[in-house]
């Protein structure tokens, strides 16, 4: 029941996404040379075909969901504080991403490790802090000195 209810919503999303692609995204963000004589060889042909198929699949999902006797009241159980933690995690990821070139990958990773460990309510906080210090350093050692990857060092403390 619950699956079918979700199926309708997923189907509607697919239809809207397909229409958005066909009406807005492809005409604006896919460039095609003016001298293409046959539409089949045009760069827009494949995206249009896939968008049309997405709409067809979306309609299929909507119809199979719609004709069921779905119960809107039955939803997946909410986890207390779940959405709040997800929002914090999204913020951690944004800071992680923007902190990489400024603070350096090692130091940002240490902070992200600690933040994530406390976000998932680790029952081993001391182990988490020790691992937060060690794991990014070990990975730095491997990638920078074995695999010769230029790991971002940041503007403050540089590692050998």
């Amino acid at each position: 029941m619950q699956n079918l209810h979700r199926q309708t919503l997923i189907g509607l999303f697919a239809v809207v996404a397909g229409l958005f692609l066909m009406i807005v995204a492809i005409p604006n963000w896919v460039s095609s040379p003016s001298n293409v004589r046959n539409i089949i060889l045009s760069p827009v042909f494949w995206p249009y075909t896939l968008s049309a198929l997405t709409i067809v699949i979306g309609l299929g999902l909507t119809i199979t969901g719609h004709f069921s006797s779905e119960d809107m009241s039955q939803e997946k159980a909410e986890i207390p504080g779940g959405y709040g933690r997800l929002v914090i995690m999204a913020v951690v990821m944004v800071i992680y991403m923007f902190g990489l070139p400024r603070l350096g990958m090692v130091w940002t990773s240490m902070l992200a490790f600690v933040a994530t460990a406390f976000l998932v309510r680790t029952s081993h906080p001391k182990t988490a802090v020790i691992c937060a210090l060690c794991v990014p350093l070990i990975l730095y050692g491997f990638f920078a000195h074995v695999a010769s990857v230029a790991i971002p060092q940041g503007n403050f403390v540089r590692l050998p």
């Binding site: 992680y96 990489l100 990958m105 990773s109 992200a112 490790f113 600690v114 994530t116 460990a117 998932v120 309510r121 680790t122 029952s123 081993h124 182990t127 988490a128 691992c131 937060a132 794991v135 990014p136 990975l139 730095y140 990638f143 790991i151």
Partner: peptide
């Protein structure tokens, strides 16, 4: 798991 998954996150980024 509270140590494993943060480790996975960092590993993914590297």
């Amino acid at each position: 798991r509270g140590v494993l998954f943060p480790g996975v996150l960092v590993l993914c980024v590297y």
